[in-house]
């Protein structure tokens, strides 16, 4: 492979990886923006999404939806709703009672929720890897020696489309406006007659649903699921959110894509290799935190004394 081809191949890989990160990062960023909570459980919701869609796909297997993109899309949409509701339930049970509590308690609660989620799945699956059979082949397009499967293209497009839909939702609708308002001042929104609990629940629904879609896509792409698969992607998505500026929606998307690209190029650097991939992206987080803690799109925070 020539240098150019390696380059293009890595861009393709990076974009796909990056759009997964972006989708998960969005949830972190939205929730952080609105309730200032680092939702540890978010990464596990991604994992639950993967398993949920797998279950649905298995149910569809012998129907007309089996082994087709339609089936995957349908299962992904249903998954997004189910898991989105799970997100709302989590918020209602675990986070809402603690809205006025110290930050530390809230973080620990989030950790508790995360443990409950992944351990439940562990108990159900027996801690085994589960194959994600889609029945899709490995056909694709090759340009020179660069090979891109249809799956890769469709997933990247779908992820980007979801991000765009979200962007429109946040910027063009009343609900989006309410979300942005709450992220600025919750108490003030209450006084202005915004139903804050509803909007916060909605935020959790949307954020969680996006993570669930990413989980589904990851299943389709990697072909297997594991109860602990959310852990590493959680750290990475958080990195992505921080790169873009946490709490900023376009920042999360940008950060995701950027991290995906950095990572796929990073593994090409001699001496780093794929076993150091995670260490590499973690170093990026540290570097960003040192030099630009507010992220690329973030503004300087000024707190009123």
């Amino acid at each position: 492979m020539s240098f150019q081809e390696i380059f293009i191949q890595q861009v393709v890989n990076g974009l796909l990886l990056g759009s997964f990160y972006g989708l998960v990062a969005l949830g972190y960023s939205m929730v952080y923006g609105i309730v200032k909570l680092l939702n540890f459980a978010h990464a596990d919701v991604y994992m639950v999404g993967g398993f949920c869609s797998l279950t649905l796909l298995t149910l569809f297997k012998d129907t007309f939806l089996g082994n087709s993109w339609t089936g995957i899309v349908v299962s992904m949409l249903i998954t997004m709703v189910i898991v989105g509701l799970l997100g709302v339930v989590i918020e209602r049970i675990a986070y809402k009672p603690l809205r006025e509590a110290p930050r530390l308690s809230l973080l620990i609660t989030a950790l508790g929720v995360s443990m409950i989620l992944y351990n439940s799945v562990m108990v159900v699956t027996g801690g085994e890897y589960r194959a994600y059979k889609t029945g899709l082949g490995f056909q694709g397009i090759s340009i020179g020696s660069v090979f891109v499967t249809h799956t890769q293209i469709i997933l990247t497009v779908a992820a980007v489309a979801l991000m765009l839909v979200l962007h429109l939702f946040i910027t063009k609708t009343m609900y989006g406006k309410a979300m942005r308002a709450i992220s600025m001042d919750l108490d003030c929104c209450r006084l202005m007659g915004v139903n804050c609990n509803k909007i916060i629940a909605l935020t959790f629904f949307v954020g969680t649903a996006l993570a669930a879609s990413a989980g589904t896509m990851a299943g389709v792409y990697y072909g297997s699921l594991h109860f602990f698969m959310g852990f590493v992607i959680g750290i990475k998505a958080f990195t992505a959110a921080v790169i873009g500026g946490i709490g900023i929606i376009p920042g999360a998307m940008l950060g995701g894509l950027l991290l995906g690209l950095l990572e796929s190029f990073g593994t090409q650097i001699p001496f780093i290799g794929s076993e150091w991939k995670d260490v590499f992206s973690f170093s990026i987080l540290i570097i960003i935190l040192i030099f630009k803690p507010t992220g690329l799109l973030g503004k300087k925070e000024s707190e009123r004394m």
């Binding site: 675990a94 929720v113 351990n119 439940s120 108990v123």
Partner: peptide, 20 residues
Amino acid sequence: GQYRMLIFGLVLLILMIYRP
């Protein structure tokens, strides 16, 4: 056995809500 961490997670959650 394998329910251990699940129980721990629940304990963590309940503690934070009712007895921080």
